[in-house]
Amino acid sequence: MARPPRFDTDQLLDAAVRLAAEGGPVAVTMAAVAQAVGAPSGSVYHRFAGRTALLAEVWLRTVERFQEGYFAALAEASVPDAERRPGPEAARAAACAAARHVVAWSRAHSDEATLLLYGAKDFGRPDWSEEHIRRADSGNARVFASIGTLAADLGATDDPGRDRVVLALIDLPLSLVRRHLRAGEPLPPHAEDLAEECTAALLR
Rank of each mutant, 00 (worst) to 15 (best):
R18M: 11
L117R: 08
A77G: 12
V166S: 06
P25K: 12
L55G: 05
F48Q: 09
D14V: 01
V63R: 14
E112I: 02
E192N: 07
V143Q: 13
Q35W: 02
G69L: 03
R51K: 12
S41V: 09
A34S: 15
L19F: 06
L19E: 13
E131H: 14
G38A: 08
A151Q: 02
R61Y: 00
E22D: 15
D158T: 04
A191Q: 04
H190P: 02
L115P: 11
T29V: 03
L55I: 04
C96L: 10
V44I: 14
G148S: 13
A15I: 05
G161S: 03
L74V: 04
N140W: 04
R179A: 15
D122K: 06
T114H: 07
P25D: 10
L116M: 15
A168R: 08
G139E: 00
E22Q: 15
A72Q: 15
A91P: 09
R134P: 01
A98Y: 01
A77N: 12
I133Y: 00
S106R: 03
F144I: 09
A145V: 07
V177W: 05
L176G: 02
D122W: 03
I133M: 12
R107T: 14
T114C: 09
E197P: 01
T62V: 05
A27G: 07
L150W: 00
A56P: 11
A191H: 05
V28R: 08
L167S: 13
D153S: 13
R178I: 01
P25I: 05
A97R: 04
L55E: 08
P25E: 13
R204K: 12
L55A: 06
A145I: 01
E192I: 01
R51I: 02
R6E: 13
P160H: 04
A2E: 14
A195G: 09
G42T: 11
